[in-house]
Amino acid sequence: MRRDSAIGNGLAYALLTAVGLFLILPLVWMVLVSFHPSKAAVPELKDLWPTAWHGENYATVLFNKELPVWRFAVNSVVVTACVVVGQLLVTSLAAYGFARLQFRGREFLFSLFLVSMMFAGTVTQIPVYLMVRNLGWLDSYAALIVPGLSSSFAVFMLRQFFVQIPMELDEAARMDGASEWTVYRRVVLPLARPALATAAAFSFFAVWTDFFWPLLSTNSMRMRTLEVGLSVFKNSYGVENWPLQMTAAVVTLVPLVVVFLLTQKTFVKGLTVGSIK
């Protein structure tokens, strides 16, 4: 394949590298600063490489007395795991129903999911908060988990994948006496593994980095997630304690980077699903 508008290979690599550095250097800076002495001011660029590596910053941050970062981390892990697993189950069941079963009102019900995607966000935040408060769930795992147990986007995306799997496979399994549950569990799910991985990755990143909802629905240090804890950390340490702030930021980001590297192939593929028909 040739693209005549494109420039020479060498220049293309140079440009890609420049953009890559532009995007990645701030992250490298963050990691380097996290190893500076904890009481230090922001290091000048020329002093960026630590003269001594203060790895104990990580212990200081994780086991901080006033800000229990390890507790934030546990909360983030519990909440993210529950939401990702729950959402995958709920949305894949629905996607199976919408893609492969006939029932009255199917198109109408599916369209409701599309409508709700337009309203997501600002409009529903206040009523959902009031509902959760009336249920007595504020500042609990229930508040952090239950509203995330389904996602219109995931239902939509999984359905688009499921309709592409040949129907003959279902029919053959049913001939053999398989129940719908068996068809779902033994035929469709195994074939849809890439789609499920994409959905899981999307939901992982969305939940792990969610800031607004945990900020609203929790208020005790015991229930904060890493993302909210990080913002508290910034406010309570101010600008004077950059190395510790950056250490906290690295702690928040490491799981994201690991999961991203593990899933990025399917992730990038999934991203283009919505745009290219």
Binding site: V19, G20, L23, I24, P26, L27, M30, F205, W208, T209, F211, L226, E227, V228, L230, S231, K234, A249, T252, L253, L256, V257, F260, Q264, F267, V268
Partner: peptide, 11 residues
């Protein structure tokens, strides 16, 4: 290229 966009907005 993709990395910055999956990062936490707070960080």
């Amino acid at each position: 290229f993709y990395l910055p966009s999956v990062m936490s907005q707070v960080a």
